[in-house]
Design a protein around this nucleic acid. Structure first.
Lengths: 332, 332
DNA sequence: TCCGCATATGAAATCCTTTTCACAAACAAA
DNA sequence: TTTGTTTGTGAAAAGGATTTCATATGCGGA
């Protein structure tokens, strides 16, 4: 079924049918005739032809570092809900934490394949920054702050600052930190900075030695904790950049006979389902991942509909979720 | 940049350029001329125009019930890795466990928007079954078995049978079951059947009363366990359809002062990161989710390249992961 | 009466490829 | 010599919509 066939059946021109479908001038009489034919035939215009002509694909590209991660999953859920409401589709690309691939996808998607891109960048390389500016479609950065770019991000710094302050208030003095690479500005650099500044505000210095850099996994947390524990057997607080890392650390410390929440306080970030269900439950930070996703989607749609206005940088809040692992009343 | 401009610059016809790009007859001389121009200009053909002409979008639609779930995330990861290798893109649709939406998306994606669909169905309704047969693009069902349809699925029945047998072998006699709706054939019906048959093989009957139907969440597991426990305070084994449900049940039982692995044995399914990290660790089934995803993707690509051959129904294996929660030596 | 404006219409151009078709040349086989 | 096959080429059609443009009518206001 093509528009010409519909036009013929309804006894009108192609243009009239097109107008009927797109709210142009059509007389009541013809409108009825076209409507009848369209309904009888179940005609649906070809998206490809529309795209070729209008240059709009009604698709948004979403680039994520990985898809089998709870925080990413929650963000994507937020994105899909908004896109769906507005009749857009989501084209998914997984960069595998590889900044080269992030770039490639950005270019690939830009090739008129999508109307806009939501980029969940991890590493903010110079090349990436430059590329974003060059693209012909709007880009929203999500989960990362890049000044001068449209972005929606979390207040990683203050979240970590607060959680560290909480642990400090419990009287801990021998801190260790397990984070991720500083190339990841949000989860790596910002959280670590929050940790450092909170300690500094209490007049404490962080030695290079007491901080380890791992990956986003439970196993990595376990290994890094082992390494730290050998150097600092009298550690009384372990601050981790993610829940997964913290759970790994917890496993190791428990194996060493430490009582978490008593001998050692421990914190994660992300409020994953893990945090609430390990024993003891893990003090963590709740970030608004769904909202981050939906806000990003709203922003990209706004950019598409209204054209580029002023750059928006949206910082989202967080919530401190205090559980047993940082409560040294626990188990008494 | 269009193909005509390239053709003009290279002093050849459009057709020659098209042939150059698609491995048709082009003389060495012209080939060089075209190559030079293409490289200098960085020309890339318009995907929309190609699609309009060839009717191939190089996109695969993937319909999932939800995206923020670890099993779904792992499957999607498997899918993307294969699609990416073969130059295909992934169009994501989230059905929110709503069979009406599954249907809608199936129709929507079929509208020439994608070359094929991978459908992670939960509820296999009659309407869905019928629709799949009608579609003009190939469909691969994933995570569910539907005889006569191309599908990749897990051996849910035997997995549950085995895990139940394991618990039986530990001497338990008072079983409770927490599952999900039977509308979900794989996770609901098949797993429950495996449970029932294993008990029956040991000469035991399952009373209707001792099985509850919940949702895919920790909270649901907690609530259903509470309900069951009031009826069966002397329960000594709880078999759950998913890790999340099992963890919820575990929380409740622990609150009641039960020693999991001693007083009550408990099992989940899915080998999620939760299972290995709760205390005591949870006996579970490892399903090959990534492989399920990649196999599904391979199958859909095969259908596209080679045309429809015989229907394939691939059943994947599983692995029993025995942890502390089913080990009644634990804690002695 | 005449002008301007909103409404209405369809033929044709446009978007950018791929593919068909007609036509040729070169060379091998019969 | 004739026939057939492979290689090579470009004009034009096809794919299916939207948009432009030229044209027309009816109506209110000057």
């Amino acid at each position: 079924m093509t528009i010409s066939e519909i036009a013929k059946l309804a006894g009108v021109s192609n243009a009239a049918v097109s107008r009927y479908l797109n709210n142009g001038y059509v007389s009541e009489e013809k409108r009825r005739a076209i409507k009848k034919v369209v309904e009888e035939t179940g005609y649906r215009p070809s998206l490809q032809a529309q795209t070729l002509r209008t240059k709009r694909t009604k698709m948004i590209g979403v680039i994520v570092p990985q898809i089998d991660s709870s925080s990413v999953g929650r963000m994507v859920a937020g994105i899909t809900s908004v896109l769906e409401e507005n009749g857009y589709r989501l084209l998914l690309a997984v960069s595998e934490q590889n900044s080269q691939k992030e770039l490639e996808y950005l270019i690939l998607l830009n090739e008129k394949q999508v109307d806009g891109v939501i980029l969940f960048a991890t590493v903010l390389s110079v090349a990436l920054k430059k590329k974003i500016k060059q693209l012909s479609v709007p880009v929203v950065l999500t989960g990362q702050h890049l000044s001068g770019c449209n972005c929606v991000y979390h207040d990683d710094y203050h979240a970590m600052y607060d959680v560290t302050k909480l642990v400090l208030s419990k009287g801990c003095r021998n801190f260790c930190y397990i984070g991720v690479t500083n190339c990841d500005r949000a989860v790596g650099a910002e959280r670590f900075r929050g940790f450092q500044d909170a300690l500094a505000a209490a007049g404490m210095l962080v030695s290079e030695e007491s901080a380890e850099t791992g990956k986003f996994t439970v196993d990595s947390g376990y290994e890094k904790m082992k390494k730290l524990y050998k150097k600092y057997p009298n550690v009384d607080a372990v601050i981790c950049a993610t829940d997964e890392i913290a759970v790994g650390a917890m496993q190791y410390l428990k194996q060493q006979g430490k009582k978490i929440g008593m001998d050692v306080l421990l914190t994660g970030q992300g409020d994953s389902v893990l945090a609430a269900n390990v024993s003891p439950s893990l003090t963590t930070i709740h970030y608004y991942y769904e909202e981050c996703g939906s806000k990003s989607a709203q922003m990209i749609l706004e950019l598409l509909e209204k054209g580029t206005i002023a750059v928006q940088e949206i910082k989202l809040g967080y919530e401190l979720v205090e559980h047993e692992s940082s409560n040294n009343e626990f188990g008494r």
